[in-house]
Amino acid sequence: MMNNANNTNIRADFALITNWVSTKAKVLDLGCGDGTLLTHLHQTLQTTGYGIEKDDANWLTALKNGVDVIQMNLEEGLSGFEDQSFDTVILSQTLQAMHNTETIVQEMLRVGREAIVTFPNFGYWRNRMQITLGNMPVSKTLPYQWYDTPNVHLCTIHDFDIFCKNHHIEVMERKVITEGKDVHVLPNLMGNLAMYRLKNSA
């Protein structure tokens, strides 16, 4: 399910996620792909937990990587997982491909004390430029043509901020990066990957 974003961004993405996960945390990775992130977290922070993956080939690779991987469809929610049973629930570059976007974010915060959500920022200036020139954006973080993209709910950083506010979700931390570098100025314009650390508002 994970988009094939460029490696610099994947590594930056994973490194930053690692900063937001505590040692020995219990982690649930939604759309865990081949299990690279969970393996990385386990090796660096001795985390435990599970991955969820729908695709057969990814699922099998995750198993080979030693991940406890559950094959299920995230669109159906996280029934089967108890309330507040994980320290951190991660959705890495999968949000934009979800149909039940609202449900999954709420489910993440039901099951986890914290959630980490990362997604390609549709507001990135290169995307805006391509739209202005009359085409749907195609880039390293959005590597699909309009007719074959799995992405159905693309959003901007601005959109996601409003989403969190309306759903009583507290943004604990936010990072915006482009080509692996932090973006501080005009993030919704200059950043191509957005990362959020979330929890329910008290």
């Binding site: 435990t48 699922w59 198993l63 406890d68 559950i70 299920m72 089967g80 997982f81």
Partner: peptide, 21 residues
């Protein structure tokens, strides 16, 4: 089968679950 998986998850036991097409 998912009921079994759920019970194993509730106990934080190592479990892999495949739904083979």
């Amino acid at each position: 089968s998912r009921e079994i998986v759920q019970a194993l998850l509730d106990n934080a036991l190592p479990v892999k679950y495949a739904e083979v097409t």
